[in-house]
Design a protein around this nucleic acid. Structure first.
Length: 216
DNA sequence: AAGTGCCG
DNA sequence: AGTC
């Protein structure tokens, strides 16, 4: 029964260790992509993408919305999680089932059990957009990992260390790739290099990133 | 208490 | 083009 293709079919998604506690799961989100994209449209119809402003008063090049019980927000007063979208003054849209299912699957695949995200930050990059090196540290429980899902145009993910000046490694992230970091890697600095121009069949000239966290 | 920001 |  076994033939040349059996090992390939039995194989799990390609995984690449980025660091102790950090894993890149290539293509894990591919089977979810259509459902994810449809759900993103629904979310954006309720809580539109907007360019948030940082504490320094600069508008981010990335456009943001959220779903889930808590949403990441930034304005001149700083960063925080809020149950209410400051633009609509209503709760963020509920987290779709396919979002939660993928996040949980990814965490398990990466060896982080018991991941229960209550927040999904949705970032939209158009060519030229970037996210400079930062830490995710506004969450209450650093025992819970971060799960990051890439859709659309490819991007260069920058993954550093615990200290800002630690060396930074770069990884190409494609449509369907998922990065999970937790444990000793939970507070690693990370960012996204300026997005290059291109065209993606499903999303056109953009990249959308889903970042799942347990905020509270 | 800054910070996922921009500039040279 | 990478780094400060």
């Amino acid at each position: 029964m076994a033939d040349l293709f059996t090992p390939l079919l039995a194989e799990e998604p390609a995984r690449e260790a980025l660091a102790d506690g950090a894993m890149l799961l290539r293509g894990l989100a591919l089977p979810f992509a259509s459902a994810l994209i449809e759900a993103i449209h629904g979310i954006a119809a309720i809580s539109p993408f907007r360019h948030m402003v940082t504490a320094g008063g600069h508008a981010m090049s990335v456009a943001t919305t959220n779903c889930g019980a808590a949403g990441w927000v930034s304005d001149r007063s700083g960063y925080r999680y809020d149950a209410i979208d400051p633009e609509t003054r209503k709760p963020w849209p509920e987290m779709p089932e396919c979002f939660a299912a993928l996040a949980e699957l990814a965490a398990i695949q990466a060896g982080h059990a018991q991941f229960r995200p209550d927040a999904c930050l949705i970032n939209r990059y158009v060519p030229g957009a970037r996210l400079s090196l930062h830490q995710d540290r506004n969450e209450r429980d650093f025992a819970q990992p971060i799960v990051s899902v890439s859709l659309g145009l490819p991007a260069i993910f920058r993954f550093g260390g615990i200290r800002r000046n630690d060396p930074v490694r770069k990884f190409a992230l494609h449509h369907g790739d998922v990065v999970v970091w937790g444990g000793p890697a939970r507070l690693r600095f990370h960012g996204v290099a300026e997005l290059k121009d291109g065209f993606h069949d499903q999303l056109g000239r953009q990249r959308i990133n889903l970042t799942f966290r347990r905020a509270r």
